[in-house]
Design a protein around this nucleic acid. Structure first.
Length: 844
RNA sequence: GCCGGCGUGGCGGAACGGCAGACGCGGUGGACUCAAAAUCCACUGUCCUUACGGGCAUGAGGGUUCAAGUCCCUCCGCCGGCACCA
C-alpha cells in the first residue's frame, strides 16, 4: 500500500499531525548497522584511561515481558545513553551494558497455561526487547549482554548463594510466611503492599512452610550507615532508613507474680521499649497471642477465653489484623507481673496489637504516653498514670496526680510520678534508667529493627534451583562448586504441586541424588530463588560476562567498580536496591569485591503518564507504543522528545502533539544540510563573528553543563535557540555547523552521524571531541540594567558589563522616568547589583 | 495517622533570593500558494487604557528582605511510600 514517497508519513498515530520530511528511517537503520558492524561501542579495560577517565553507567535491566517495551523504558535508557555518548566525546572510557532479568513468574504462568517452556517464551521476548531497544540506537556494548536465566549466568548466582550459606547467612526456618494464593508462593515482607501481593494484588494469607531465609538483619546497621556516603535521592534513602527501622531503647524483664504476689522464680517476660523513662507508667503488660508464655501463665479461669482468642488471631490474615487496627481486642490472662521499678503488681493481657515478629513479642503498656496502649486501656478500663509532663508546665513543677492525664502524649518532657527521678528530662532519664536496669541486672540497652530476614525461597519452577541437598545422615549439605550450575530440570508440568512444594518435587530423577558428603541417598532442595536473586549482582557480571572460571575477574572488576551512575525507576527503592546492597556487602566481606557499596549515584527517572495524565495501562487504553512513535517520527525524535518533556526525575504526561515540535527541530538540521548541499546556503570557512560567535559559545557552555548534569530539557532548549538563529543565515560558518552537529550527537545520534558524514568526515563522530567553549565569549559586553523604584521595575538602560555600582546608580537616578517616580520623595536607600539592577527605595 | 515530593499561562515546562513565563505545543494575524499542506514572519498571562502607560498575577493566608516562584510559619489540594514496629 505504501509508496516510496509517503513512506515516512502515516496518518494513523495522530490525524492532522504534519508529516516528517527527512528520511529518518533510512538514516537510522544505516547507522545502527554501521555501529553494530564496526563494533563502535565495544569497550575494553584499556589501561591508557586513568581511573578518573572511566565511567560505569548502568540502567536497570528490564524483565522482558510479552507486551514489549513501553515508552517508560526508553526514558531512563535515553538519558544514560545521551550521558554516555557525551562522556565518550569528552574522552572517557565508558562501560554501558544492557541485559535481561529473565527468571520470573509471567513466563512460568504462561507455561502453565500453554505448556510452552518458559525458556522459549523468555528467549522470544528477549529477542523482541533487544530489537526494540536497538531501534532506539542506544550505545550499549552488546557483547556484554547478560540474561539471568541462562546457565552460565545462574551458575554464579548459585555460587554466591553458597557463599551466603557458608557464612551462615542462609538458614532454614519453619515459620508463618506471607503466602500469595494466586502466585502460589511465599513472599518476602518487602513484596507485600497493603496486605496484597506486590505483583498480582491478591490478598496475602499466612502459611507455615519450610523456608530458606537470608540473614539480611545481620547487615542492618551497615545498610543503614553506609547510606550516608551515597549520592542517592534523599527520598530513597529515607525509604530505606524507614524500612530498616532502627530504634534504640532497652530490653528488660518483668517477673511473673505468684498467687501470693511475690515474684515467681522462673518466668520473666522480656519486653523492648524505646521509653525506659516511662517505666513508672507501665500499668499492664500485653503479650502477642503467639507468645510462648501465653499458655503457661494463663489462669484456669481465663483459659477458655484466652484459647479462643489465640485461635481467632491465628485464623486472621495479616491484613485483617492490621485492617481492624482501629478497634483493639484482647483478653486478660488472669496472670500478673511485677513492675521492677516500684514492685507494683500489674495485669498481663494478650492482644494482637502486639506483634510476635517485632522486639520480644511482648510489651510493657504505658497508656498515658502511647496512643495504642491508651486506646487499649480506655477500652478495657485499665489504670492510666501520667509519668511525663511538658517542660515548664504546672505538673512538671509541682508533680501530677497519680492518675490519667487529659490526653495521651508521646512527647518528651520531664518525669513525674517516678519516685526519685521526678523532674528529670526525658532524654537523660532514658540513659539513667537504662543504666539503673543494667546495674540491677534487670535489663540492658538494646537496638531493634523493623527489617526482617529475607524470605528467599519460592515454591516455583522458573528460578535458580537452590544448590543444596538434604541428607538423612549429614543434614543440609551444599553441593560442591564444581557441580555448578545445578541445572533446572525439564518438567512435565509447571503447575505448583498441591503441597506447596515447587514442581521440582515431582522430578524424581533430579530430586534423588547422592549426598556430596557421605555418598548416601539424599534429596535435592526443591525451592527456587526469588526473581531478585539474579538482579542482585548483574552489574558485576557485565564486567566479565563470559568468564567461566570466576563470577568476575578481579582486575576487570577493579577497573570499573563501583557503578558511577545508576538510573531506574523509584519502584525499586527498597526491594532491589536493598537486596543488592546486602549481597554486595557480603561479597565485600569475603573479599570478592573492592567497594562497600555497589552504586555511587542513583537517579530515578519519573514516570511517563498517558496523555490523560493517568498511569499508562492497557485497561485505560492510554498506552503509547514506542514502535509506533519510531515508525512515525523516528528514533531520534522519540529520544529528544522524551528528554525535552521535562526534568528526568519528575513524572510527566506524554503528548504526541508535543513531539512534533522536537521533530521540527530535527528537520531544521536536515533542512540546513539540504540547503548547504543545494548551494542555497553557503558553508563558509571563515570564522564566525559578533553575536553568532557569542551565541555559539554560550550554547556550547549550556549544553555541556546540562548534558553533564542530566538536565537534558534545558540543554535541548539551548540547541533550539542556536539552530533557529543559524537556520536564518545565508552564510553558515563551518565551525558553527560542525559544533551544532557534535552537540546534537548524543541526543539524536543517527541524524548527527549522517550530517557529520555529509560534512565530509569518514569516521563516526562517536569519539570526536566535544566542542569547547571560551568563557570570555560567553559573557555579554552590554548588560541591560533594570531600574526599580521600591521594588517595581520602572525603567531599564544598557551599560557595558562591569560598570561600577556608583555609575549605575548615578545613571539610574538621572533617567526621566525614574525622576517621575522619585520626585519629591525622600530617598531611603539604593541597592545596586552589578550588571543587573538598581533598586531605589523612597518614602512619600 | 506518620514520612517524603509537588502545586507557575489553554498545555509540557524555564527561571545563582534580582526583568516571572526561556524553549516547545496550541491559538490569532500575515507572507508564499489557484488552493491547501509544509515553511517563514509577527503577536499570544490577565485586567484597565484609543494610546502612552498602569494595576494584578507562580494553590491560599501570613512573615523575613531594598527585592520572594525561590527562604520561614500556617492551611488547602494532588502524587508516592509506610502503617498497631512498642
Amino acid at each position: 500500500m505504501e509508496t516510496g514517497q509517503d513512506r515516512y508519513y502515516s496518518p494513523t498515530v495522530l490525524p492532522g499531525v504534519p508529516m516528517a520530511k527527512y528520511p529518518f528511517s533510512d538514516i537510522e537503520s544505516k547507522w545502527q548497522r554501521r555501529w553494530e558492524g564496526e563494533r563502535t561501542f565495544k569497550v575494553l579495560e584499556d589501561s591508557a584511561f586513568p581511573k578518573e577517565k572511566r565511567r560505569y553507567v548502568l540502567d536497570m535491566f528490564p524483565y522482558p515481558s510479552g507486551a514489549g517495551l513501553h515508552v517508560g523504558h526508553p526514558e531512563g535508557y535515553t538519558a544514560t545513553d545521551i550521558h554516555c555518548r557525551f562522556l565518550r566525546m569528552r574522552g572517557y572510557n565508558v562501560l554501558h551494558p544492557m541485559g535481561f532479568d529473565s527468571f520470573g513468574l509471567p513466563a512460568e504462568n504462561y507455561a502453565i497455561q500453554t505448556g510452552t517452556h518458559p525458556a522459549v517464551t523468555t528467549r522470544t521476548n528477549i529477542e523482541r526487547f533487544r530489537e526494540q531497544i536497538k531501534a532506539l540506537g542506544f550505545s550499549y556494548d552488546w557483547d556484554r549482554e547478560v540474561s539471568t536465566c541462562e546457565e552460565d549466568y545462574y551458575k554464579w548466582t548459585q555460587w554466591i548463594f553458597l557463599k551466603l550459606f557458608d557464612k551462615g547467612l542462609a538458614y532454614e526456618a519453619e515459620m508463618p510466611i506471607n503466602w500469595c494464593p494466586s502466585c502460589k508462593t511465599g513472599l518476602a515482607n518487602e513484596e507485600v503492599k497493603d496486605g496484597e501481593c506486590d505483583r498480582c494484588h491478591t490478598k496475602v494469607t499466612r502459611k507455615r512452610i519450610r523456608q530458606w531465609v537470608l540473614r539480611i538483619t545481620a547487615y542492618a546497621d551497615r545498610l543503614l550507615e553506609d547510606l550516608e556516603e551515597l549520592d542517592w535521592p534523599e527520598a530513597i534513602k529515607i525509604q530505606q532508613r524507614n524500612w530498616i527501622g532502627r530504634s534504640e531503647g532497652a530490653t528488660l524483664g518483668f517477673a511473673v507474680a505468684r498467687p501470693d504476689g511475690k515474684p515467681s522464680r522462673g518466668d520473666a517476660i522480656e519486653v523492648f521499649t524505646t521509653r525506659p523513662d516511662t517505666l513508672f507508667g507501665a500499668t499492664y503488660m500485653v503479650l502477642s497471642p503467639e507468645h510462648p508464655l501465653v499458655m503457661k501463665i494463663t489462669s484456669k479461669g481465663q483459659r477458655p477465653a484466652v484459647e479462643a482468642y489465640v485461635e481467632s488471631a491465628a485464623r486472621k490474615s495479616d491484613l485483617e489484623r492490621t485492617d481492624l487496627a482501629k478497634d483493639k481486642t484482647g483478653v486478660f490472662t488472669g496472670a500478673y507481673a511485677i513492675n521492677p521499678v516500684n514492685e507494683k503488681t500489674i495485669p498481663i493481657w494478650i492482644s494482637d496489637y502486639v506483634l510476635i515478629s517485632y522486639g520480644t513479642g511482648a510489651i510493657m503498656a504505658v497508656p498515658a504516653h502511647d496512643e495504642r496502649d491508651w486506646d487499649f486501656a480506655k477500652k478495657f478500663k485499665l489504670p492510666i498514670i501520667q509519668v511525663v509532663a511538658a517542660e515548664g508546665s504546672e505538673e512538671a513543677k509541682h508533680g501530677a496526680p497519680e492518675a490519667a492525664p487529659a490526653e495521651c502524649t508521646a512527647a518528651e518532657g520531664v518525669a513525674v510520678n517516678s519516685g526519685a527521678w521526678n523532674g528529670m528530662p526525658t532524654e537523660r532519664f532514658k540513659t539513667e534508667m537504662t543504666a539503673w536496669l543494667e546495674e540491677k541486672g534487670l535489663g540492658k540497652k538494646a537496638i531493634n529493627y523493623k527489617l526482617r530476614d529475607w524470605l528467599f525461597s519460592r515454591q516455583r519452577y522458573w528460578g535458580e534451583p537452590i544448590p543444596l541437598v538434604r541428607c538423612p545422615t549429614c543434614g543440609i549439605v551444599a553441593i560442591p562448586e564444581s557441580e555448578l550450575p545445578l541445572v533446572l530440570p525439564e518438567v512435565s508440568s509447571y503447575t505448583p504441586s498441591g503441597t506447596g512444594e515447587s514442581p521440582l518435587a515431582n522430578v524424581g530423577a533430579w530430586l534423588d541424588t547422592a549426598c556430596p558428603k557421605c555418598g548416601g541417598p539424599a534429596r535435592r532442595e526443591t525451592n527456587t530463588m526469588p526473581q531478585w536473586a539474579g538482579s542482585c549482582w548483574y552489574y558485576l557480571r557485565y564486567i566479565d560476562p563470559s568468564n567461566t572460571e570466576e563470577f568476575v575477574d578481579r582486575a576487570k572488576m577493579e577497573y570499573w567498580m563501583p557503578v558511577d551512575l545508576y538510573v531506574g525507576g523509584a519502584e525499586h527503592a527498597v526491594l532491589h536496591l536493598l537486596y543488592s546492597r546486602f549481597w554486595h556487602k557480603v561479597l565485600f566481606d569475603i573479599g570478592a569485591v573492592n567497594t562497600r557499596e555497589p552504586f555511587l549515584r542513583l537517579v530515578n527517572q519519573g514516570m511517563i503518564l498517558g496523555e490523560d495524565n493517568q498511569k499508562m495501562s492497557k485497561s485505560r487504553g492510554n498506552v503509547i507504543n514506542p514502535d509506533d512513535i519510531i515508525r512515525e517520527f523516528g528514533a531520534d525524535s522519540m529520544r529528544v522528545y522524551e528528554m525535552f518533556m521535562g526534568p528526568l526525575e519528575v513524572s510527566k504526561p506524554w503528548a504526541t502533539a508535543g513531539l512534533v515540535g522536537v521533530s521540527r527541530f530535527l528537520e531544521r538540521y536536515w533542512g540546513m544540510a539540504e540547503k548547504v548541499a543545494s548551494g542555497e546556503t553557503k558553508l563558509a570557512d571563515s570564522a564566525p563573528g559578533g553575536e553568532l560567535l557569542k551565541l555559539l559559545h554560550k550554547t556550547v557552555k549550556k549544553v555541556t553543563h546540562d548534558t553533564d548534569t542530566l538536565n537534558f530539557n534545558t540543554g535541548i532548549s539551548a540547541m533550539m535557540i542556536l539552530s533557529n538563529e543559524a537556520a536564518r543565515l545565508a552564510e553558515l560558518p563551518r565551525s558553527v555547523w560542525e559544533s551544532m552537529v557534535l552537540m546534537l550527537a548524543p541526543y539524536a545520534p543517527h541524524l548527527a552521524e549522517e550530517l557529520w558524514e555529509r560534512l565530509g568526515h569518514a569516521e563516526s563522530l562517536a569519539r570526536q571531541s566535544w566542542p569547547a567553549y571560551d568563557e570570555a565569549l560567553c559573557a555579554d559586553d552590554e548588560k541591560e540594567i533594570v531600574v526599580q523604584v521600591n521594588g517595581k521595575i520602572r525603567e531599564r538602560f544598557t551599560a557595558s558589563a562591569g560598570t561600577s555600582e556608583a555609575e549605575l546608580e548615578a545613571r539610574a537616578k538621572a533617567l526621566p522616568k525614574v525622576l517621575e517616580w522619585t520626585m519629591g520623595k525622600e530617598l531611603v536607600k539604593v541597592v545596586c547589583v552589578k550588571d543587573k539592577l538598581v533598586n531605589i527605595v523612597v518614602k512619600a
